[in-house]
Design a protein around this nucleic acid. Structure first.
Lengths: 194, 194
DNA sequence: ACCATAGGAATGAACGTTCATTCAGTAATA
DNA sequence: TATTACTGAATGAACGTTCATTCCTATGGT
């Protein structure tokens, strides 16, 4: 067998961990259960990840790296502010709906000791994906297109509803279709525009 | 000692549990630690609560019962839709900011096995506090004041941002004052109004 | 072509820790 | 004294992690 199969095992572990954590939360996904679902011995996980925390952190970074390009696909900084916002918002919401496991994992992650630390990092040096939104908001405020709120409130007014709607869809309280997705993001825009 | 002191112990347990769970989450608040902070033997908790789950569930119901009248104080079904929405929204946000422990506990609760079950209950027979919002939204749609969205999306567009803003305030990412609170809720209104 | 063997990969039973819960004993109350 | 309230050490279950052992395969000598 070749080097490729090593990766197979590693990826099996990552997949199993994502599934179980998304479905049952961090504390409902013991290492033994992850190992079982990955068809791997319990000890094998520790050949690839130092411990559970490292596994989870890597899972999170995997996700961010995976989402970023999907959401930015077709994004152009030249288009009007509103159009760019709708693009990002709908792309994000679509991603969440099409990848419910990813969404559920992210939610678990943000409501955990990890999440708090991670937020602190983002305060100091904002990382990766948020920059796009930050730029968009700052430009929108400067051009007087957006309400003059602290950035963090604009974030909340935009992502708060998107996350809530995605959660409701995944839990089956609404059925979102393409039209509803766009309308929802447009409603968010109405909330932040002047 | 009189009957009153029994209540004192019970309330000490409830207070300690709320503090620790709000601060460290369900799994960072072992029964032994709750007992210690309540100045009570570990076994004493079980004189008042069958087990940890029951303690948590009762904590949650305490909170709901405590919040409901505070938020409805001064609420009048006669006033215009917008005014009523602003009243409820600002009251809720103010409550969260003034009672950060309550807010953090509610967040922990909603991101847990309990939360999911509880949501299912609310689907069938909507309980207590949500009725006010439900009425408000249904009336707003009927009068063509609000966008014609599924109720659950209107909920998300309203509470999503409020929860996110409250979280940011409590974690120190924004400092909300009375003006910002009102502006934020008005922005939510802009999101749901036609 | 065959076997021997070295060494990394994989395993899962075993370990130490932590937690919710119990219960035998103690203190307070009447 | 009898009853009730309280205590915290003891218990067992569950967890993350370790490590002695097994398995697999690539290599080199015959």
């Amino acid at each position: 067998m070749s080097k490729h199969d090593k990766h197979d095992k590693r990826e099996e572990i990552v997949r199993a961990a994502l599934e179980l954590i998304a479905e049952h939360g961090f504390h409902g996904a013991p290492m033994a259960m992850i190992a079982e679902r990955a068809n791997v011995g319990a000890g094998t996980i520790y050949r690839y990840f130092e411990n559970k925390d490292v596994l989870i952190a890597e899972l999170y970074q995997n996700l961010e790296a995976k989402m970023y390009p999907v959401i930015l696909e077709g994004y152009s900084a030249d288009k009007p502010t509103r159009e760019r916002f709708i693009h990002l918002g709908t792309a994000l919401l679509r991603y969440f709906i099409e990848n419910p496991l990813d969404f559920r994992f992210l939610e678990q992650f943000h409501n955990s000791p990890f999440g708090a630390e991670h937020r602190r990092d983002k305060i100091l040096g904002v990382k990766d994906g948020c920059d796009v939104f930050r730029e968009l908001f700052e430009e929108g405020i400067a051009r007087q297109i957006l309400k003059e709120f602290p950035l963090s409130i604009l974030f909340s007014l935009s992502f708060g509803p998107l996350a809530a709607v995605a959660r409701d869809h995944i839990l089956g309280f609404v059925v979102l279709n393409e039209v509803l997705i766009v309308w929802t993001v447009e409603a968010c825009w109405d909330g932040i525009k002047r």
